[in-house]
Each structure stands twice: as structure tokens, then as C-alpha cells.
Amino acid sequence: MSAISRDDVAHLAMLARIDLSDAELDKMSGELAIILESVARVSEVATDDVPPTSHPLPMTNVNRPDVVRPSLTAEAVLAAAPASEQQRFSVPRILDGD
């Protein structure tokens, strides 16, 4: 389960929009394999009677009422934007979105 191919790394890099060189792909494949092997050791401890745990605290149904609270102003919000135009965040063009 720890095997990660160079192609896997290239695919993940594409999904994460990280441009990796050939040398970096080789390096990352090796490094990620070590990380995965380390994580896989956890499953040796987790036997069938240990359910996968996503939340450490046994809490459910933490809700809030449907009551409006003030939003930030557009000025405050856009002050944090690298660029803005027409009161909107300006971002690089999307190549393959929908």
C-alpha cells in the first residue's frame, strides 16, 4: 500500500497545481514513499476492532441558529486580496474550470 509511482506523484502535482521538474519528481517519489511507509505502520496497530477515527472527541450536533450576523465590509475583505477589480477578487484566468 506504500508504493507510490512517479506517475502518481506527477498526477498529484497536477491536481495541486505544483509544477515539478523531472528531477523533483524523482526526488519526491522517493520521499513520499518513505512518508507513506511510516504512516502505513499505523495500520499495523489498527486492528479490525479499532474503527477509523476522524474526530478525537465524541461530539455530535454542534449547531448554530439560523440568525444573521454582520459580514465584513467589501473594503475590508478586498484589502486582503492580491488584486481586485469591480469590487471582486481578481484571479488568474481559469484554464479548465466550469
Binding site: D66, V68, S71, L72, V77, R88
Partner: peptide
């Protein structure tokens, strides 16, 4: 009246980026 995970209002056609907060941003 409010968003799924924060108290921002959900009105349609409001001025851009006037219904946002740290959670939904």
C-alpha cells in the same frame, strides 16, 4: 437566512463581496 457554516446573509443580487466573513472566505 444565513449560510451553511457562518452567519453571513444569503440575499440574492447584493453588491459583490458584502456577504462574506472569515469562515466563508
Amino acid at each position: 437566512a444565513t449560510k451553511m457554516f457562518c452567519g453571513c446573509a444569503t440575499g440574492f443580487g447584493e453588491a459583490p463581496n458584502t456577504q462574506t466573513c472569515p469562515v466563508c472566505l
